[in-house]
Every structure is written in structure tokens, then in C-alpha cells.
Amino acid sequence: MNIFRFFGDLSHLASIFILIHKITTTRSCRGISFKTQALYVTVFVTRYLDLFTSYVSLYNTVMKIFFIASSCYILYLMRVRYRPTNDPSIDTFRLEYLVGPCVVLALIFNYGYNPTELLWSFSIFLESVAILPQLFMLQRTGEAETITTHYLAALGAYRALYIPNWIYRYFSEGYVDPISVTAGLVQTGLYLDFFYVYFTKVLQGQKFELPA
């Protein structure tokens, strides 16, 4: 564990608390892509199956359980509790375009042909693109509530912070995980446009609006 990974994980935790806070205080999941949230549940469940087979640390176990539980809770909020505020007509990204290629990539790039490794690899690839339905929705509506942009910024910062962590681990432990690094770079890259608008507008006190 190093500070980059630790702050990355904290940022990930923060993003989830911000999202739950947004939904429960506004009593609305307007502006949030259900598809992206469903993909995160898939990501966490497929990656953290090793909860039952290997123990890393108490920190690791608690975080895994939290990510699975909180992502399921968010689906519950969107699908049951605040269902009327969820508008599927603007959440139109085709999931098969994401899931299909990730299955293929996992079959080609993995650290072993067994279910655990294949699902782990799949989850890494899927995580890197899981935000696309959300960003697509943002692009379509052209604007976002400020709280939603804070959620996205914290979520984007999480994987971005893993990059210096991998550089640090390479020099300190000789640890290299090419699958995570490649997917992590792609994942962070997808946020660059968003980050640009976030830093130049939202953090200057303006509303998040995309140029027409």
C-alpha cells in the first residue's frame, strides 16, 4: 500500500458516498445512468469473487464488501425507491457494445485460463469502459447537476491515482500488471474531456454545461 493507492481508494469511496448523498437528498436519480451503475455491480461481483478464496488484508476485505454492497444499494435506490425519477429514454447506450468486446479481450488477455482469472480480467476491462453510458448521457443532455460532476470527478480521480501507484510499485517492488495498467490508462483517458470542463467551469463556480 502506498499513498497513491490509498488516496485512490478514498476517492472511490468518496464518489460512492457523493452519489448516494445526491440521490437521497434530492430524492432523485435524474442525470445518473442506470446502465453504468449496473455495470459497476457486474465489475465488483466478477472481480471480488476471490473474497471466498483468498485473504489479503482486513482493509481489502472490508473495501470489497463495501463496493459490492453499496453498488447494489445504488441499483435498489434507482430501480425501486426513486424509480419514477429514473428516465431510461435518455440512457440509451448499447451495453452489448461494451460487454461483448470485454469478454473477447478477457479471453485473449488474462493471467490464466481458469474462471477466477478470466472473470478478473473481464472485470478490469469492463471497469475501464463502464462510465461510457454515463458520459454518453451527459453528452446528450449537455449539462449536469454540480453534485453529479463531483461524483464523476471523484470516480475519475480514483483510477487516475492508481497510475502513480503502478509507477511506484514498479520501482519499489518490481511489480507490473500490464492488464490493469493498460485498462487503467484507457479508463483515465475517457475522463479527460470531462476533467477539462470540470476544472475550467465547475471549480470556477459555473454550471457544468457542454458547448452546443
Binding site: T53, S57, K64, G112, N114, W120, Y162, N165, D177
Partner: peptide, 10 residues
């Protein structure tokens, strides 16, 4: 099934 790489990251 034995994991081939340490999965200590989240």
C-alpha cells in the same frame, strides 16, 4: 484454481 498474480489491489 490458484491465482497466478497477487490480487491485492481493488
Amino acid at each position: 484454481t490458484e491465482s497466478t498474480t497477487p490480487k491485492d489491489e481493488l
